[in-house]
Write a protein that binds this DNA or RNA. Structure first.
Lengths: 227, 227
DNA sequence: AGTATAATATGATATATGTCATATAAATGT
DNA sequence: ACATTTATATGACATATATCATATTATACT
């Protein structure tokens, strides 16, 4: 089994505060798992009892709305941790995690992580900072949802996907979302999302080939996003 | 100057983890302040360098949207702390705080609080749990904004105000918000908010006298909120 | 008290966005 | 390879909600 000392997650996440001994200890108790595209990592309401380290791949965090639709709250990818909030609050997870592509994740049991909390101050500080960052993002998102049009939010989302996940050799967005998922991320109906993509296409801002989306005019897209 | 040992904030906030000695130390370094309705406690982008304890009163946390409108992200009241996220992230505050009624707050400098973080594990755990709770709330809010109508959100907000802040002797909501503020909290235009209040009034769900709002039919209001 | 200013209210209208229907294209299963 | 299902696309339409205009109150000011 691979060792935590060289793992990519260690470099980018709160785990970077752990010292050699702690990492060795971690290697001993973690379990590794391959998750196929579309598979569920955990479901809203479940007791997870630990955190997941994403070694590779991207997943969506979704929440079921009262009307039965799934809403994508956030995308989480390689190098990040999952399930921290739930572990700290000592509550079931309030979001579901579903793989958007094939993934490789490790699971660390809660008991182990809580030990680091007690003994390693920098580690708990890192976790707190991550959660604070999420909260700040959530505040920005709330305002955007309230005050910006679907068109603006879609443009912004496309740019964000471009900046965060990059592009393939053919310049299309690397991260592959269905129209349905993109709509859910933007916070709109699927048809509205498709229609606006179509508009952007006609305006020459993006190019659509199958479900591939290629941004062809970042500047104009930015102008729409920022209004 | 009043002592922290008997303060109400201590009972309800993360500070409940502090022991006698720590509280005495706190009493020595805090500064107390009276804030009049409408006054600003801090403004988005400011460096606050500490946390505020709300001994009395309620304030709104607002965020300026790109189009220049203020959006109310959250109400915070007696017994709660302000500025924790900013202190942990070591960043300027990302929200403004404005008093909705006369307030009494204490300020504790960052250096002092950070000391507790290092030495008192239960305290830092409490702070984390609070922030995690905020994040969970934010997730729920995001979904609501995306998937529920203004009418549903207004009904829900009225019920929430009723449950959280109670009512006066005449049964009207204790917390006094302008239509503008209520709209901003619900995430809609002022006129839309006024119009829907008017509708609720005609349907006999609420009663409007001046800017006072009285809920007269909780059940029906709940039905609208939950739909 | 009386005027100026701001808040609340309501009507008229525009428009963004959701919903329903249907067509086409792509993916999946056997 | 073919049929079945699912995803994407587009049109037609309904409607929720924002915007603008204008009363009507309340509130603040001197």
């Amino acid at each position: 089994m691979s060792k935590c000392e060289q793992c990519i997650v260690r470099e980018f996440s709160s785990l970077k505060a752990l010292n050699k001994d702690e990492l060795v200890k971690l290697s001993g108790c973690k379990t590794s798992r391959i998750i196929k595209k579309g598979e569920v990592i955990f479901e809203e309401g479940e007791n997870v009892n630990g955190i997941f380290c994403i070694k590779d791949g991207v997943c969506k965090l979704t929440k079921l709305s009262p009307n039965g639709k799934d809403h994508i709250v956030k995308l989480v990818s390689k190098g990040e941790l999952l399930g921290q909030r739930s572990m700290i609050s000592d509550e079931p997870v309030n979001l579901s995690a579903v793989a958007l592509e094939d993934m490789e994740v490790c699971f660390i049991p809660k008991t182990e992580v809580m030990g680091f909390f007690d003994k390693n101050n920098q580690f708990s500080m890192n976790v707190m900072k991550t959660i604070c960052g999420d909260l700040k993002e959530a505040d920005v998102h709330a305002v955007n949802m309230a005050q910006r049009t679907v068109k603006e939010r879609l443009a912004e989302t496309l740019l964000h996907l471009h900046n965060t996940y990059g592009k393939n050799e053919d310049d299309s967005l690397k991260i592959q979302l269905s129209r349905d998922e993109l709509a859910s991320l933007v916070g709109t109906a699927t048809e509205s999302c498709i229609r606006l993509l179509s508009d952007f296409n006609k305006l020459g801002l993006i190019k659509l080939v199958g479900k591939k989306i290629t941004i062809t005019d970042i500047c104009k897209l930015k102008k729409i996003a920022e209004n």
